[in-house]
Amino acid sequence: MKVGSQTIKFKNTPKILETSSIVGKKEKEGPLGNYFDITNEDIFFGKDTFEKAESEMMSECINNLLSKANVDVSSIDNIFAGDLLNQCIASGYTIRDLQIPFLGLYGACSTFVESTLLSSIFVDGGYANKVIAATSSHFCSAERQFRLPLEHGNQKTPTAQVTVTGSGSCLIVQKDFSTTNDAYITYATPGKIVDYGIKDMTNMGGAMAPAAFNTIYTHLEDTGRKPDYYDAIITGDLGVLGSEILVEQFKNEGMDISNIHKDCGVLIFDDNSQDTHCGGSGCGCMASVFSGYFFKQLKEKKLNKILIVATGALMSPLAIQQGESIPCIAHAVAIENEV
């Protein structure tokens, strides 16, 4: 059911049954290191290229999800997945081996919420009973895609962010499946593309903050909720700078979200000891932090109502070379323990 200008209210409130997360070495050493299900010290994940490593990582993540939830791969109706690589090859090659009907997505770093949102719609509408939403990103394959070679000696600007090596996935099922009674998906707000003309690829947080603002603001308007309805409003990878802008813009609108706003990119690394500048980024950032950390907080009832908002920068290095600015998007999904 549509409410307001662009928000979906789920009639049947599908729920997140289980999540799974996997990260690399640097994320393991970060403040949230102990929350992730699997970590791998080997940046190649036993493969010979970074692209294959990313596929392997996502594959391990999904297999772990299936075994944690104790469901058979053949019982999964659909999988929505995406990553940052050209033609979404990390997802494509992973799911080739799984033989699940696959719908590939590209929403840059917003893909995790985009896939959760679409999975929820499939389940809510009764078109599927079990759907997986998964995304991944890998530092090295993303550097190849967007920046300079790894061994090249250059300085990152203070606004730069570090792509998270990680993957996260969640299994979305019908409300009455099994006995768990938490983590229901109640609302979803797909975002519009917002572009404030930022052209600096090393300042993603600054570019994406207006998109996050737009989606969150619209969501609150559509649902008639106040920000403090939520225990936490969690953004994907705005980083230190983007978060600061978001909070300040809400303050200008008379809403103080400074206590409830959390950003996965800020949480996953510690800039002082890990030299990560503005924090983490990438599809795997929100995927692994939500799956590894926030979902557990929901289960333990430390958080009961959260809004997850993943932001994505929909540019390519080619478009930037051609003088384009960075179009940004944010999607939001509300997850609540009680309905």
């Binding site: 404030y196 003309g197 930022i198 207006p210 603002f213 737009n214 603001y217 619209t218 802008i245």
Partner: peptide, 14 residues
């Protein structure tokens, strides 16, 4: 629902 700034203002603000 957008931030009330022009592109130039926003760029300077960032």
């Amino acid at each position: 629902s957008n931030i009330k700034m022009t592109n130039e203002e926003y760029s300077d603000y960032v």
